[in-house]
Simulated scan of single mutants.
Amino acid sequence: MSNNNQVSYHVTVDDKESIQAIPFNRNVWHCGGSTDPNAIKKGNWLSIDIKICHSKSSGLRYRVAEENAVQHIAKHLKQFGWGIK
C-alpha cells in the first residue's frame, strides 16, 4: 500500500488528547537522514510514528502530553499483543 500524501506521522498527542491521522497499516514518511534508501524504506514501513506536540520547555503541558503518549502506546501494545522489544 502506498502513501502518496507523504504525511509525517500516524498519531499526534498533546496534553488533552491523541489523534490518529493515518491507519497503522499505511506507511508514513517520518524516518530520514540516511544515505541508504533501504534503511529509510525499512524505517518508514516497519515503524509507527507518534508525535508529542509540546517541547520539554512547555513544562507541565509536556509532562502531561508525554504521559498521554505512554498511555496511548500501552493501549496499542495490549490491543495488538506487541511486546516492548
Rank of each mutant, 00 (worst) to 15 (best):
K56Y: 00
G43Y: 04
D49P: 00
L46M: 14
K51N: 03
S57R: 07
N25H: 14
R63C: 01
I73F: 05
R61T: 02
T35Q: 14
K16S: 11
S34R: 11
V64S: 06
K56C: 08
S55D: 03
I22C: 12
C53I: 01
K42I: 08
S57V: 05
Y62T: 01
W29T: 08
H76E: 08
W45G: 06
S34T: 13
C31V: 15
F24G: 10
K75Y: 15
T35I: 11
K51H: 03
W45M: 09
V64T: 12
K41V: 00
G32I: 12
N25V: 03
N44E: 01
D15Q: 11
I22N: 06
G43P: 03
I22V: 14
Y62D: 02
R63E: 08
L46F: 06
Q20G: 04
E17L: 05
I52A: 03
K41C: 02
I48V: 10
S55R: 05
I22A: 07
I19C: 14
I73S: 09
R26K: 15
A69E: 04
S58P: 01
H76L: 14
R26W: 03
K41M: 03
T35P: 05
L46D: 13
A21D: 06
I40M: 06
P23A: 13
I52Q: 02
N27V: 10
P37Q: 09
G59Q: 01
S34M: 13
E17P: 06
K51P: 00
Q71H: 09
A39N: 08
L77P: 04
E66G: 01
C31L: 11
I52T: 02
V64K: 04
T35M: 05
Q71M: 10
P23G: 14
H30N: 01
D36L: 10
S58H: 08
N68T: 07
G59E: 04
C53A: 15
I19H: 15
G43M: 02
K51Y: 04
P23L: 13
S18G: 15
D15G: 07
T35L: 07
S47A: 14
W29E: 05
W45N: 02
N38E: 12
K78S: 11
S34Y: 12
L77A: 11
K56G: 10
I19W: 10
A21F: 11
K42G: 00
R61Q: 12
K78Y: 04
N27P: 07
G43K: 14
R63H: 09
R26L: 15
G33R: 07
S58T: 01
Q20R: 14
C53R: 03
I73K: 07
H72S: 09
D36S: 13
K41H: 11
G59A: 09
H30I: 05
N25W: 15
D15L: 05
K42N: 12
E66P: 00
I48M: 01
K78Q: 11
L60D: 14
K41P: 00
D36H: 10
H72Y: 15
L77C: 07
G32D: 08
N25F: 15
W29G: 00
L60K: 08
E67P: 01
I52L: 06
P37L: 12
N44A: 03
E17S: 14
S47M: 08
A21W: 08
S34K: 12
K75P: 03
A74V: 01
H72Q: 13
N68M: 07
